[in-house]
Design a binder for these strands. Sequence first.
DNA 1: TTTAGGG
DNA 2: CCCTAAA
Length: 531
Amino acid sequence: MLEIDSTSNTYGQSEMIIFAEKWATVSSTSNCGCSASSTLGDSPCFGEHFEDKAGCMFEGKLGAESYKSKGKKDGIPCVIGSSEDLIKLDMEPHAQVGSESDAKASLLRDCISHGPFPKHCDHVKVVSRDDDENSVECTQASTISKFSRPRPPPDIGERKIKKLSASRQWRPQNLKGAKMKPMYCNGTYYHKDERSQNIYPFKKRKFYSQSPLCPSDGGFHHEDTSSFPKKRNCDNCSAAIGASSSVTGQVHECKGCNVKLSIKSFKVPELFIEIPATATVGSLKRTVMEAMTAVLGNGLHVGILLQGKMVRDDNKTLLQTGISQDQKRQNLGFILEPRHTQITPPVCTEDPSLLSGGTSHGISRSGTYYVSPDPLLNLSSCVESNLNKVPSLADILTGNNLPETQALVAVPSSSTEALAVVPFHRKSHSEYVQRRIRRPFSVSEVEALVQAVEKLGTGRWRDVKLRAFDSANHRTYVDLKDKWKTLVHTARISPQQRRGEPVPQELLDRVLAAHAFWSKHQTRQQLKTAF
DNA sequence: TTTAGGG
DNA sequence: CCCTAAA
């Protein structure tokens, strides 16, 4: 197996220039009818020009080296990225914070996730490469294909990730039973008191994030191709990570009243990819693509950190926030975070020992990947009050506004690697399911399990669950049965062969004893019923 | 839904 | 942990 650690992945865009309306919040820039589910896997139309309503214009060649556009109208030029991984924003000091961050977010979104060309181009004009003025309404795909890379045939199963995270599901066989008894079903996570819920961070976020209360994001998630319930559809959590600008960059003020910010490349979160050595390069590319889509495909939000504080008021001008001040800008940072952060803060499990460090470097299935958070996200502490906002991922990751017990993933906070350990794997054509986080049994759990089995015997896992793990929502009776199986196995092998947190020999002995006893017992029962 | 077992 | 046949 090949394991690729692409920690240093960066999105150094090639040269890219945005022209946005001076006073517009540039978020509109990217709201040009783009479809959220246009993903990397869907293959952006490279090499396109387009101009959206807001007058922003891109010429994209994400796959290639160049990505630039020329400006027109009275926009403010923003150069983002280059071969030197440079991102420059030339902003008017009175520009709103939101316009700056949104500009970048939309750039990244468009270029990274969706490609420079929106899939649905109702509101987009395609202009000839040679003549920017001669724009032609894009009314059909054929118009685009003239410029773009040939689109794949309808069979995009292998490539398309339909609302990647949205399509993910847990225990599909149980999904329909939302009314099941809590302990049997993950439906439990819908209904029970959240505070009592344990850490299925992504799942929880998925389920809650697009609850009816979750506002529409207005632009990037409209193509809801998923057939799953709405409430599971706005999970960005898959990308329960964020990225931050790897360098806050030099900041310099230009002569006029414009503020120029220079940001080095945006880093993407650490990516782990596992793929068979026999896989083709193409499939490797696809896998990376899918991973990136998972991370970025759902839309990004840019957060701004000024001297360690999150700048939340998008309506403040750069002057007001102090961004235009040279000295303050020394400490200016940008953070990428998933767009939907309306999550219900998960709560730490009642027993910290239950969380005893599963490593995030677990092996996932072939051709899968998972991401871990960018450590950079942990660097700053934000003290600002929340202004009525639901904590964002960045908040959580930076420990802002959330007590430790509400960590996004209830793992020891020191364990940065424990975050986001959920790999994806393809279930069918365009569905991705998320594997549950691996959470090794702690000794105390083993103890409880052994005790229950001693009492109830093997084969009554539901009762075992009820008896000893009733409140451990993340342990199903199947889990307990599986654990017992491994315990028996563990007890039988030599201590040298055992892995993970060592289980006291005494417990293992009891396992063997109980296993032997109940095996006989079962045999006897069977014999009884047989005769 | 639960159990049982293979993957 | 996942998947699923079978009960």
